[in-house]
Structure formats: C-alpha cells, structure tokens
Design a protein around this nucleic acid. Structure first.
Lengths: 183, 183
DNA sequence: TGGGTCATGTAACCTGTTACATGATTAG
DNA sequence: CTAATCATGTAACAGGTTACATGACCCA
C-alpha cells in the first residue's frame, strides 16, 4: 500500500488538503508513482478511519473552504514503521508498460519496431528535460530543508534513468539495423 | 490493460495453458511486469468472453488434463491493433516502489538512509545476475526464432537498468556521506 | 514421507482508472 | 467572456493481491 505511505510522507512535511496532495504528487512523485485525485480523496477517508490522520475545516472567504489533513501520532508511527521495515526485496519490482510493447514488437515489421524505439527516445528526451527542472528545484529547496536531499537524489535517479533509456534505444536501433553485424 | 495484451502476445507465439502462461510471465516478463496465476486465469476467462481466445481440453493420462488456449482471428487483430497504436506517451509512466521509500527516507537518520541505498544496491546486483541469464537465454533462442530479438533487447534494457541503479546508488551514498562537499 | 512440479481455479479484498458533478473566483 | 485555478468529491468498473482449496505423480 504505497499510496497511503506516500501521503503519510508528504503530510509529515506539512499539513495539506487533498488538493495540495494531488498537486504534490504530480510535481514530485509522478515520475515513479501516479495517483489520481479521486484516489487520494478515497485514501484520505480510509486513513482517517485508521486513525493515521485528522482533518480540520479551514474557512476561507475568497476561496472555497478547505479540509486540511494532518498526521496523528499513530500516523507518524506507521510512517516510520514503513520506512524502517526491511522490505527492499518486495519493493524492487518495476512496472514499465513501454517495455511490454517493445517486447512484443518483434511480431511487427522491423521498420515499425525501429520507429517504436525512436518514438520512445523522443519521449525520453522530453522527460529528461522535466527531470532536470525537478532536480534543479530540489537543489534550490535543499538549501532550506535538509529532508529534501533525498528528493534531489531520487530526481537524479530520473535523470540517470532517462539518459540510460536514450542510450539503450540507440544501441537497440543499431542492433536491429545491422542484424547480428559487428565483431 | 497490459496483462491481456501480454497474454495475447505470448499466445501469438504458441498456444498454451494458464499454467504455461504463468511460467512464461515469470521467466521473461517478470522484470517489468508481474502477474499472479489467479489473475491470469481470470483474464483468460474474460478474454474468452471477448472472443479473443478459444480453449481446447487436452486429455493426458500421466498428468492432469489441461486447457490449452489459442488466439482467434479477433485476438490477433486486437494484438496488432494494440501494437500499432500510437500510445508511447501513455506507456511511459514508471512505477518503482523502492524510489518511494528512498524519497521519504530523508525523515530517518542519515546512516539508515545510507543503509537503505546499500541494501538496494545488493538487490540490484542479484537482479543483474538474473538479467544476464535471461539475456543469454534470449541470445540462444534468437538463433531459431527471429521474433526473440526484441526479447534480447528488452533483457538488455534490464541489464542497463540495474547497472545504472548500482552506479546511482554509489553516487548517492557518496553525496550523503560528503554533505555538499566536492567542487 | 516429504517436497517439487503439473494443473486447475474461487473468494474476498484492495488499489487504480475513468467519467461525472458542482461552483466560486481570478486573470487574460 | 472564457479558461484556469481552487476545492470537493461519488459511482462504476477494471485490475492487482492474498489466501485458500484440490489432487496426482515423481524423485530423493
């Protein structure tokens, strides 16, 4: 149940509304975890039932009223239990839909398989630009908040990831163009 | 709905039982897509209703009887529709639970954060060994079946991925050990 | 006699996705 | 006047996870 823990982690830095959480997800975790707004609201209700968070209505005159969520002691305990837990092996599995498509694209004509890889590469270059922006933003805020150093480290993962993807696509395109050439 | 398409892709190479599909998933797609046996059986039933596959009971005397699934014309059409579809942007999002944990590990003591990265690195090395085995198996069978070239290419992705992970973990551990040192 | 492989699934639950619904304020 | 942002959600469905259930055969 990573979404619940992601929410706990964000609320540990600051109390927020569902709307804020949704934005935070899109700005900082989106490149390795996606969450729909509707899902966040559902999880918030369920976490409130578990006693991990509480909410307070804040009345605003110029904007709609908002429901601000905060961690409870039980929520903080659960966050740290999850963080401390020895579960790296369970957390390893990756889910990468694009690889599924490339895996089976051997059934298509070769040129189309190559086009897929080229399109993939273009998407990676776009992602890479975004990752650099996220990384720079992390470096900026790390000056103020030390917990953000891990944010920069994960953003740096994204940079390495997309650079690796671009290089791999190049290599693979060449392999497909020179069938078993080389050496 | 990538699982259905993964099943279509595997059945396009050879007709199989649910059990065989489950094994194939574990042997070849597991490093970028996971599927439980129970889920495969459920999807098979639903795909039969959609008319994408048909089943035939094969009676065996020494082993339990089996239910062998094959693609129908409609199933093949759907497979190629999915493969040809221009959806790279939708297929880009990654899901990597280990990054979620590392992202929030800034809330822990630094030494424990470093330990997390070290454990991650150990897991990556294990995965890397497995990926090399998968890659070698692909290279072997590519001599017989040309559609397996894409399998080797995706296995090669796995190799690049875990090598990148190991390097990134090294870099990140050093960054955490020398806070803002360097230059 | 105990564990592994072959072979099938069901049931319950949890998580993720898509579409819909509402309504005020603010900036171009 | 129109689009974006703020702010909340519900309903229905699809997909993923966990636990359970059965039973034969083969190998050490």
């Amino acid at each position: 149940m990573s979404l619940k823990h992601g929410i706990l982690g964000l609320l540990n830095n600051a109390s927020m509304t569902g709307y804020d959480l949704s934005k935070s997800f899109h700005l900082s975790l989106n490149y390795f975890w996606q969450a729909q707004t509707s899902q966040i609201y559902r999880e918030l209700r369920s976490m409130e039932k578990l006693g991990w968070i509480t909410s307070k209505v804040v009345i605003q005159t110029d904007k709609p009223n908002k429901n601000v969520f905060s961690l409870t002691a039980a929520g903080r305990t659960e966050l740290f239990r999850w963080l401390a837990e020895d579960s790296m092996r369970d957390d390893m599995p990756l889910r990468a839909p694009f690889l599924m498509k490339i895996f089976f694209s051997g059934a298509l004509e070769q040129e189309i398989g190559i086009e897929k890889l080229e399109t993939f590469q273009i998407c990676c270059r776009e992602q890479l630009i975004q990752m650099h922006e996220i990384y720079d933003a992390c470096e900026e805020s790390a000056k103020q908040y030390s917990y953000v150093r891990q944010h920069g480290i994960t953003a740096n993962f994204g940079i390495h990831f997309y650079e690796m993807c671009i290089a791999w696509a190049d290599e693979s395109i060449n392999q497909l163009k020179n069938p078993d050439g080389s050496v």
